[in-house]
């Protein structure tokens, strides 16, 4: 008995929504007035919207708008970690630069100056600001890598060891990227913490239905415009009378009058 009650409690929503869909569909099929058909389509579609939204509901959930300070958590946490990540990237780049210097020292002493330039570039590379956007971090990494690339371009034609420099530059980029990834993970962890407090209802069905509502209204508009034109062309929007009129057009007046008589008999 208890099982049955649970079964019904879990599903009664869907059943009533299905009844609504059926009513809408029945109006479309069984009613002859074109405006009424459009109204029926509207009910049918709206009921399908209710079904979608019902899927996404989570009991004890709340509307999918952040209210537990998730955004602050994400940016704050991200900002702090970003600082560390920046340091990590700098260190990696520094190593790379050192490697580069070592290589260049073999080729040309002036390369040292270039190495210095690179370090300067690193210092000037925009350090992620506290609370700044996370997206900047990979950019910073890219800038470092680019700077190294420029640096390589300035050095005289390198021998095979030039490859090491190149890969070192790549390493700097990777390091920055990984650090950024770490920030993302950290932010996600922080979010999990924040979200244990608040449960959000699934946003995806809402998005789909926002689109579908607009599509539904567009269909209604076109359908009604057609009904207006039909009224002007035929003088009626009753399906029976329209069919009778078309019958006349197709098979001559005798058949049409018979159909009209039938339509009249129903009235």
């Amino acid at each position: 008995m208890d099982d049955w009650l649970t079964f019904i409690l879990e599903r009664y929503n869907y059943w009533i929504v299905i009844m609504l869909m059926m009513t809408g569909l029945y109006i479309v099929f069984a009613r002859g007035n074109l405006v009424k058909k459009i109204v029926g389509l509207n009910i049918f579609q709206t009921s399908v919207f209710i079904y979608y939204i019902t899927i996404g509901k989570i009991v004890d959930g709340t509307a999918p708008i952040y209210m537990g300070g998730e955004l602050e958590a994400a940016s704050h946490h991200g900002g702090k970690e970003a600082g560390g990540a920046g340091h990590g990237a700098e260190a990696a780049a520094h190593d790379a630069a050192a490697a580069g210097e070592a290589v260049h020292a073999k080729i040309d002493n002036s390369a040292l100056d270039h190495g210095q330039e690179l370090k300067d570039a690193l210092k000037h590379a925009p350090a992620p600001e506290e609370g700044g956007s996370l997206h900047e971090l990979p950019d910073a990494g890219d800038k470092i890598a680019n700077a190294m690339g420029d640096h390589l371009g300035k050095t005289p034609p390198a021998d095979a060891s030039g490859f090491d420099v190149g890969s070192a530059a790549g390493g700097a980029h990777d390091a920055a990227g990984n650090a950024a990834g770490g920030v993302g993970d950290g932010a996600a962890d922080a979010l999990h913490g924040a979200m244990d407090a608040v449960v959000y209802t699934n946003p995806l069905p809402h998005v789909l239905i926002l689109t579908a509502i607009v599509v539904g209204v567009a269909t209604t508009a076109v359908g009604l415009a057609l009904a207006v034109r039909i009224r002007e062309a035929y003088g009626t929007i009753e399906e029976d009378e329209l069919e009778a009129a078309d019958e006349i057009a197709e098979f001559g007046h005798a058949a049409g009058e018979r159909a009209q008589a039938e339509a009249g008999a129903g009235a």
């Binding site: 269909t219 359908g223 062309a233």
Partner: peptide, 12 residues
């Protein structure tokens, strides 16, 4: 004019 009823049926 039957194009109109045809289009309406198609719409439904």
């Amino acid at each position: 004019r039957r194009a109109l009823t045809a289009a309406f049926n198609y719409l439904v």
